[in-house]
Design a protein around this nucleic acid. Structure first.
Lengths: 143, 143
DNA sequence: CGGAATCCTCGCTGATACTG
DNA sequence: CAGTATCAGCGAGGATTCCG
C-alpha cells in the first residue's frame, strides 16, 4: 500500500485554527507545516506553476517539467489532488488520457506563493551578497 | 570540512532577477528555490519565529525551540546567518555568550512568510476536507 | 498512456563525544 | 556555554518494471 505515502507522518489532529508558530512542536499549527511542505516542494511548486491557466495531461506535464521522474510526477499530482489543489479528470478512452487542472483553491495558493517569489526577487541580491561575504570570511582560515 | 553543508548542492550562477518558475530546471529562479527551502525548513522557520522581536542566545533558543537538537540548531543558525537573515554576536567572555538577532532582512522575510501562514489558516478547512474526501474515496476499493 | 510497486542509493538528522 | 566532528539510522526520491 502506497497509500501511506500521501498521509502525514504524524499526528495533526488539531482542527483549531489557533496558529502559533512557536508551538509547532505541539500539534497546533501542524497544518501550516504540511501546507508549507507541500508548497515548498520543488515538484509541487513547479507543477502548480505549469498548471497555472492550463489544463495539461500527464505526459505533457512530464514533458514540460523536465527533470521530474515519472514516479515523482505521479506522487506529486496525487498529493496536490488530495489537498484539493488540482483536479484530475480521467477520460475513459483506450489510450488513457488524464487531464490535470488547478482548482480555484490551487489558483489562490499560486497567487500567494507569488508573494514569496516577489520577496525573493526583491531581496536576492542581498542574500547573495550576504552569502558571498560569509563565505569569504570563512575561507580565511583554511587547511 | 563541514563548510560544504552550507553551500548549495548545485549551480545557481544566474544573477539575473528574471524569475520564471517554469524554468527552474535551468538556473533561473534557482534562488527562489533555495530561499523556499530555507523558509520551508521546520527549524529555520521556528528559529525565525522565535527571534521575532527578540535577541536570544544559543542556549535560550535551544531551550525554547524544544525538540531541536544541539546540532540542528547550530546548522540552522549557520544557514540563516549565511543568508543574512540573522546576526550572530559573540561576546568574548569566559563562559562564552553568543546572541542571535533577526536582521532587518530576516524580519521582512518573517513578514512575508506570514502571508503564506495566513493563506493556510484561511484555507486549512478546505484542504482538510479535500483530504478527507479523497481518503474516503480511496478506502472504497481496498484489499 | 497513466499509474503502481519494488529496489536501492544517499543526504538529512539525531546522538554522542571532544574542544575552547 | 557555544561549537565542531564523527557515526549510524531513516526516509525521500530516482530508476526500473509490470499492469490497465
Amino acid at each position: 500500500m502506497e497509500e501511506r505515502t500521501l498521509k502525514s507522518p504524524g499526528h495533526c489532529t488539531g482542527t483549531d485554527h489557533d496558529y502559533d508558530v512557536l508551538q509547532w512542536d505541539t500539534r497546533q499549527g501542524c497544518e501550516v507545516r504540511h501546507i508549507l511542505d507541500r508548497v515548498a516542494d520543488k515538484w509541487s511548486l513547479l507543477t502548480i506553476a505549469h498548471l497555472e491557466r492550463h489544463t495539461l495531461r500527464f505526459s505533457e506535464l512530464h514533458r514540460n517539467i523536465q527533470g521530474i521522474s515519472h514516479r515523482m510526477l505521479t506522487v506529486t499530482l496525487r498529493q496536490l489532488e488530495r489537498d484539493g489543489l488540482i483536479t484530475r479528470t480521467i477520460h475513459p478512452v483506450i489510450p488513457p488520457r488524464v487531464d490535470y487542472t488547478l482548482t480555484p483553491l490551487g489558483t489562490t495558493l499560486h497567487t500567494t506563493i507569488q508573494t514569496l517569489v516577489n520577496w525573493t526577487e526583491h531581496h536576492q541580491h542581498e542574500i547573495t551578497a550576504a552569502r558571498t561575504a560569509y563565505d569569504n570570511r570563512q575561507h580565511n582560515q583554511p587547511t
